[in-house]
Computed example of a mutant assay.
Amino acid sequence: MATLNPGPRVVKQAIHWLLKLRESGNSPLLQHQCEQWRAAHQDHELAWQRVQSLHQELNLRAVPGANVALQTLESGTQRLQRRQALKLLGGVVMLGSAAWLGKDVDALSNWTSDYASATGERRRFDLPDGSVLQLNTDSAADLAFDARQRLIRLKRGEMMLTCANDAASAVGRPLLVQTRHALLEGFDGRFVVRQDETCTQISVSQGNVAFHAPGALQWVTAGQSLRVDAQGASLLQQPEMDASAWTEGLVVTRDMRLRAFLAEVGRYRHGFVSCSDEIADLRLSGVFRLEDTDQLLQLLPQTLPVNVSYRTRWWVRLERQA
Rank of each mutant, 00 (worst) to 15 (best):
L318N: 05
V273E: 04
R259T: 10
L299Y: 05
A222M: 03
V306P: 04
Q321L: 13
A230G: 02
V273S: 06
L290H: 11
L236H: 01
G266N: 02
V265K: 06
N307I: 14
S244Y: 14
V287G: 07
L284G: 04
V287D: 04
S285Q: 12
T303F: 00
S285G: 14
V220M: 01
G266T: 03
L304E: 12
G266A: 09
G286S: 05
H270L: 15
L299K: 15
R311K: 12
Y268Q: 06
D277N: 01
R311N: 02
Q298D: 13
Q302S: 12
V265R: 10
S234W: 10
D229R: 09
T303P: 00
L296R: 09
G215H: 11
V209W: 04
A222V: 07
D255M: 10
Q231M: 12
V287C: 13
D292A: 07
E240V: 15
L236D: 01
I279V: 15
Q295K: 15
R257L: 10
P305F: 14
L284S: 04
V265S: 09
P305T: 11
R289G: 07
E248N: 08
E278R: 05
Q302C: 08
Q321T: 12
L282D: 11
T312I: 06
G223W: 06
G286W: 00
R289V: 06
C275S: 08
P239D: 00
D242Y: 06
A263D: 05
R317D: 15
V308C: 10
P214S: 05
R227D: 07
S234Y: 11
R257Y: 06
L217T: 11
F261A: 05
F261D: 06
Y310W: 05
R320F: 01
W315V: 03
E264M: 13
G223A: 10
V273N: 05
G207W: 07
T253Q: 01
P301S: 08
Q298I: 09
V287S: 08
W219S: 11
P301E: 08
L300K: 07
L262D: 15
R227H: 03
L226S: 11
V287F: 08
D255W: 07
D281K: 05
A260T: 09
F288V: 03
V306Q: 02
Q321F: 08
V220D: 00
V306L: 10
S244N: 13
R269G: 11
R283W: 04
F288Q: 01
E278S: 02
A222R: 03
V252K: 15
D277P: 00
L290S: 06
E319I: 05
V251N: 02
Y268M: 01
V316I: 14
W246T: 04
W246N: 02
V265A: 12
L318G: 09
E278M: 00
G232E: 04
S244R: 11
L299C: 10
V220A: 03
S285A: 13
M256Y: 02
A230M: 11
F261E: 02
F261P: 06
G207E: 07
T293Y: 00
N307Y: 07
V209A: 04
W315H: 14
Q321Y: 08
Y268G: 06
T312W: 09
W219L: 14
V220C: 10
A245H: 08
L235V: 06
E264H: 14
G249Y: 03
G215W: 14
L304D: 15
C275I: 13
V306R: 03
M241L: 10
E319Y: 14
L236W: 01
Y268H: 15
G286D: 01
